[in-house]
Amino acid sequence: MHTTARVRARRQRGAPFPITIRPTAADAMIARAIARNTAPAPEEIARTLTWGADEKVLLALAAAGWLASRGRGASLERAGNHALLVTVAASLLPHGLKLLFNQTRPDRLTVAGHANGIPISGKRDDAFPSGHALHMGALASAAATLPAGARRPIQALAVGLSLTRVMVLAHWTSDVIAGFGLGALLERLLRLWTGYPGDDPPRGKAR
């Protein structure tokens, strides 16, 4: 049975889930403005950039980073463990939440937008929360431990990639804000398990 059929059956039985979430007035206003004023070229750019926050790309990068951190000292190994665990958890959490919540993506509610280059993204009712933004919130939170010279561009990149999900109307603005916040919270909670960003133990002085 298809997912939509299962959802319809649960509704007929009066099941509490999934919960339908409706966009806010601000969400609708922003989406309408994008749909009216966009064009194929900027939409294609945004659609390309949004791959930078895709879970498959990030899982591959986290796995490569984990392998590269082996044997490089306790601090780097801890960072590699943390990055991989956070990326896996940030990939699983949105899928679970989308079983609990239904929200129609803005790209399914526009005609003018498609004429102006808006693409079709994902499943119709999987708007909340933004998985891409959840990953980026976790990245921005983890980057808070870095020096300002590295922290600021990473956090700016995380915010920018999250906003591409609004630009292509894959998500409402509130979906992106919620996803970003959930990602930051998830990263902070997982620090309790991984011990990130602990330092290498001090070495004894050479005799």
Rank of each mutant, 00 (worst) to 15 (best):
R70H: 04
P201I: 06
I118N: 05
A112G: 10
A26Q: 05
K205W: 07
A68H: 13
T50G: 00
R124Q: 06
G204N: 09
G181N: 08
D200G: 03
V176I: 15
G80P: 08
L186D: 07
I21C: 06
A148Y: 12
D126V: 00
P197I: 03
I34L: 09
A127L: 07
R6M: 08
A39T: 04
R108I: 01
R151S: 09
A63E: 00
A46G: 08
R152F: 15
P16M: 06
A170Y: 09
D126T: 00
H2L: 06
A142L: 15
T20W: 10
R165I: 14
H95P: 00
A140T: 04
I30V: 13
L192V: 02
P42T: 01
S121T: 14
D199L: 12
P202F: 14
W66I: 03
A158W: 04
A133N: 10
I120A: 12
E43I: 01
R47K: 09
T50A: 01
W193I: 14
V168H: 11
F128V: 07
L92Y: 08
A156P: 03
F101N: 03
R72E: 10
H171R: 11
A41H: 10
G113P: 02
G149R: 14
L182S: 07
H2N: 13
I45S: 03
A25E: 04
R108K: 08
G179I: 13
V57P: 01
A39N: 04
S69M: 00
R22I: 01
P197S: 04
M167H: 14
A142W: 14
R105I: 05
T48A: 13
R32G: 05
D175V: 12
I177N: 07
A89N: 05
H95L: 15
E187W: 13
A133S: 15
D54C: 01
A115F: 02
P94A: 06
G160I: 04
A127R: 04
R151F: 07
A74M: 12
R11A: 11
W193T: 11
G96V: 08
L76I: 08
G149I: 12
L161I: 10
A138S: 15
L97Q: 00
H171I: 04
V111C: 00
G122L: 12
D200P: 09
G181P: 07
R36I: 01
W66V: 02
P197V: 05
A144P: 08
R6I: 05
G71A: 12
A89R: 06
R203D: 01
D54H: 12
L85S: 05
